[in-house]
Simulated assay, not measured.
Amino acid sequence: MNQGRFISFEGTEGVGKTTAIEQLCARLHASGIEYLRTREPGGSPFAERLREILLDPATDIADDTELLLLFAARCDHMQQVILPALECGIWVICDRFTDSTIAYQGFGRAHGDAAMRAKIDGLISQFVQQLPDLTLWLDLPVLEGMARANKRSAADRFEQQATEFFTWVHQGFSTLAIEHPTRIQRIDASGTMDEVGARIWQAVQDTLTVK
């Protein structure tokens, strides 16, 4: 049986990941490709419980505690959901993965601090057995994305951060795209949903040879 493919979606708040994922999943279905849609933090029953804590605006924890909770959720998600699906030949479509941790905790929280980045990289190498085959970074100016996100009914703990925080997060994604040009594909998230969806499908076809 062929190994499944692993695709992650990344981006700052309000870039349209949810809609983009829905469109990609529809195209995969039309192409006869079996897929599993999941998310981080979360994706498994235990990880979803940790997600509630991490996104709750009332949660007050240190940066290191936040980081370790994210990796506890990720470790369970990997073992219970992602790896079994890939081994069965199922494609995994994940809303956020390790790149978000580097961008949000390594840059948003720590402003690119080398010690925090080394800590995150160490946790990735120790607990993440499979990185995505393709990461789609939906890129949109920070203020435009925040304006979209602010239209939502209630902001979670991360969405409530200030503009400076998301400026650093965006810098994190930009840095990662430079460091991993083969895996991370920048997708212009401006324009209509169909235009963005077409860019994503083209990137998937070009990278993973899907017809």
Rank of each mutant, 00 (worst) to 15 (best):
V169N: 01
Q79V: 10
T209S: 15
G172E: 07
A147T: 14
E144S: 14
T59S: 04
T19W: 11
E195I: 11
T59K: 00
D133S: 06
A155V: 09
L140G: 07
T19N: 09
I33S: 09
I90F: 05
A177R: 07
I178R: 15
D133A: 04
E52F: 12
E52T: 13
G16T: 06
I21F: 06
T182G: 15
V210W: 11
Q130M: 11
F97H: 08
Q202T: 15
C88R: 14
V15E: 05
T12V: 14
D99G: 07
V210L: 13
R49Q: 15
L36M: 05
R96N: 04
S100D: 12
V210T: 12
D95T: 08
T163I: 13
Q202H: 14
L24R: 05
A154N: 14
R96A: 05
V169M: 02
K119T: 15
G16D: 02
G172H: 03
L86E: 02
Q185W: 10
L140C: 06
I90A: 01
L131F: 11
G89S: 07
A85Y: 02
V128W: 04
W201P: 09
W137V: 06
G108L: 01
I184H: 08
E87A: 13
E13D: 13
R96G: 05
A20G: 08
L208W: 09
F71V: 05
F71W: 02
G122C: 07
R5Y: 12
I184V: 11
L67Q: 00
F6K: 03
T175L: 13
Q126V: 10
R49Y: 10
P84Q: 03
R96I: 08
R96P: 04
A26K: 11
G4S: 02
S31V: 13
T175W: 14
F165I: 00
A149L: 08
Q105L: 07
T12Q: 09
S31R: 15
G191M: 04
E179G: 14
L68N: 03
T38D: 03
D99M: 10
D156P: 07
L208A: 07
D133F: 08
T175G: 14
L36S: 00
M116T: 15
V92H: 00
W168S: 06
V210G: 08
S125G: 10
I7V: 14
A155P: 13
A72C: 09
F9G: 01
T167L: 11
R27A: 11
I178E: 15
I120D: 05
I120A: 00
R117E: 14
P181Q: 10
D56F: 06
T209W: 15
T65H: 13
Q160A: 12
I53S: 02
I82C: 03
R109F: 12
